[in-house]
Design a protein around this nucleic acid. Structure first.
Length: 555
DNA sequence: GCAGCAATAT
DNA sequence: AATATTGCTG
């Protein structure tokens, strides 16, 4: 029985009526589970053999909304096959054994959750969340009819909620999670239990069902929601796990995890802000990150009537390094030439992001590449002029900064981020990918945001605060620091060495500068004062200073 | 209707 | 400063 969009009424009592495929060879267990599920008014179709179950879903996963499959170390392999065959069906594994290996394998193969028997009513009650999650996180093309139906329903519910926020009475309250305050503990039937185990998804708000404009149907979620809420999104697996009150988190979908975007709402000057009682609008960033780009939300401003796209609050996507990395990966994957917003959006699989967001980011990204990479190349492969010049570039702290980045930033001690994996990164700044990734090249680097990795030293050249890399030519270091490496080959491999000068490098530079003061200083640098030089040397343990330091030519 | 770009708004 | 939005063009 396929469910179509016309069956919305069918979900009047959602999640009652969800069709569940149950596969458990242990007849006693199966009967018990089936009984519990039926008490909750789910429709259970039980199978005692994997073969039958596979036959049942073969080619028509739309016959079910969710599958509950028992697994043990004995039938694990077979279950893997099942998971493979049931890719489009949210599958919950159940077992008597808490075998981490098996659990991981199942999850890795796409199981949405792994529950250990016995299954309590609480555990079973929330399984609908997987269905909803799947419904919202599967591409339209591969989505089964049953999931489409659910999605449609959920979308309609959420929309209704938005429109009647004030009175959150309506229909399936179960799905509603309110936003602002509290949450988490609703006693509602659906979301009710306290987050059961591992990954039981908690839908918190949902929101958007419609895209705004272009959107895809993703939802977004956030992690730290501040005031408004948005809806969920997906899960970036590990990361966005909810902190205790995750608002809109949906469960994760192993096969293709999507991420969530965090968005900040900006205050709008127009009066539409209405109500919100909410919080003092601290808008600024801080916590106001929302997730979910779309309109959604209920809370905050949603009140307005507009339906789908009317008054969408303004939300800002926070292009975190991680998100940017995803973006870059998508671009690289598509090829710079074919990277267009819609495709990037698809590849990124980040809920909440819209094509507009990406277009905007892409615009900036391209601009960076266009303006910066060429110059970078020049610097990277300078025309051999004279040996002196070359020597100079090879050993001096050159100010090889792209125009985009003003030197004064360094001068003022401001710090910059390292966008990319080629540089030494602070422990908290994860590498963006193994060297084998095709995308990693230059793109990932663009220092748009300050990052506490380097600062200007007395010489006016960037120096890492936590030097850990071997010496290398400075021009590159400077570039790496700015994240404008354009040569992928150099990028990895020497990685950290390109960017973080070590103490010895600094020493070398300092010594050289001291011993050859007649050499030109890098553009943009002003000669250090003797005092600063001495201070720097002293700081680095260099006490012997050549007599000619004061401007006398050594020869 | 989308993509891309530039200008402008937030 | 970083993004979003808008207006235009193709």
């Amino acid at each position: 029985m396929v469910c179509t969009a016309n069956d919305l009424l069918e979900w009047k009592d959602f999640p009652k009526g969800l069709r569940i495929l149950l596969l458990d060879e242990d007849t006693n267990s199966a009967a018990e589970i089936k009984s519990k599920l039926e008490e909750m008014e789910f429709i259970v179709i039980a199978f005692s053999s994997e073969h039958e179950a596979l036959a049942a879903i073969s080619g028509k996963t739309e016959s079910f909304h969710v599958a509950i499959v028992e697994v043990s170390i004995h039938n694990r392999d077979g279950r893997c096959n099942f998971l493979e065959a049931a890719k489009d069906l949210p599958t919950i594994m159940i077992s008597n054994e808490q075998c981490l290996n098996t659990m991981m394998k199942c999850i890795a193969l796409g199981a949405v959750e792994f529950l250990i028997k016995p299954l309590s009513e609480e555990k079973l009650r929330n399984i609908w969340q997987h269905v909803v999650h799947k419904a919202f996180n599967t591409s339209e093309s591969t989505k089964s009819e049953s999931l489409k139906s659910v999605k449609e329903f959920v979308g309609s519910v959420l929309e209704i909620q938005q429109q009647s926020i004030a009175t959150q009475t309506q229909v399936s309250e179960e799905l509603i999670i309110d936003t602002e305050m509290d949450q988490n503990d609703h006693s509602q039937s659906a979301a009710g239990d306290k987050f059961p185990a591992p990954s039981t998804p908690q839908i918190k708000q949902g929101g958007r069902s419609v895209d705004d404009g272009d959107s895809q149907d993703h939802m977004a979620n956030n992690s730290p929601v501040k005031e408004g809420a948005e809806f969920d999104g997906d899960n970036k697996s590990v990361d966005n796990t909810n902190n205790g009150n995750s608002f809109a988190t949906m469960e994760v979908d192993p096969p293709q995890p999507t991420s969530v975007v965090s968005i900040k709402e900006e205050d709008r000057s127009d009066g539409s802000r209405e109500s919100d009682n909410s919080v003092p609008k601290s808008h600024e960033n801080e916590d106001t990150t929302y997730v979910g780009p779309d309109s959604g939300n209920l809370n905050k401003d949603s009140k307005n009537t507009r339906g789908t796209k009317g008054s969408r609050k303004k939300i800002k996507v926070d292009w975190t390094p991680d998100l940017h990395k995803k973006f870059v990966q998508a671009v690289e994957q598509l090829g710079v030439d074919q990277a267009i917003p819609s495709r990037i959006l698809e590849l990124m699989k980040v809920d909440g992001l819209t094509r507009h967001n990406i277009a905007s980011h892409l615009q900036k990204y391209r601009m960076h590449r266009r303006h910066i990479l060429p110059k970078q190349e020049e610097r990277r492969w300078p025309h051999p002029r004279d040996s002196i010049q070359r020597n100079y570039y090879a050993h001096r702290p050159v100010m090889a900064y792209p125009p985009y980045h003003t030197n004064h930033n360094f001068a003022s001690g401001q710090v910059y981020p390292i966008w990319g994996q080629q540089g030494c990164q602070p422990p908290s700044f994860p590498m963006w990918g193994p060297p084998s990734y095709p995308w990693q090249p230059a793109d990932q680097n663009w220092p748009w945001k300050p990052y506490p990795a380097m600062h200007a030293d007395a010489w006016g050249c960037p120096v890492y605060q936590t030097p850990q890399c071997p010496p290398s030519a400075f021009p590159q270091q400077a570039q790496g620091a700015y994240g404008f490496h354009s040569n992928p080959h150099e990028s990895y491999g020497k990685n950290s060495s390109d960017i973080n000068p070590k103490d010895e490098v600094i020493d070398k530079v300092v010594k050289e500068a001291i011993s050859k003061p007649w050499l030109p200083l890098p553009i943009g640098l002003k000669p250090p004062s003797t005092d600063s030089v001495l201070a720097e040397l002293s700081r680095q343990g260099i006490s012997i200073i050549p007599p000619h330091i004061n401007g006398h030519h050594p020869c």
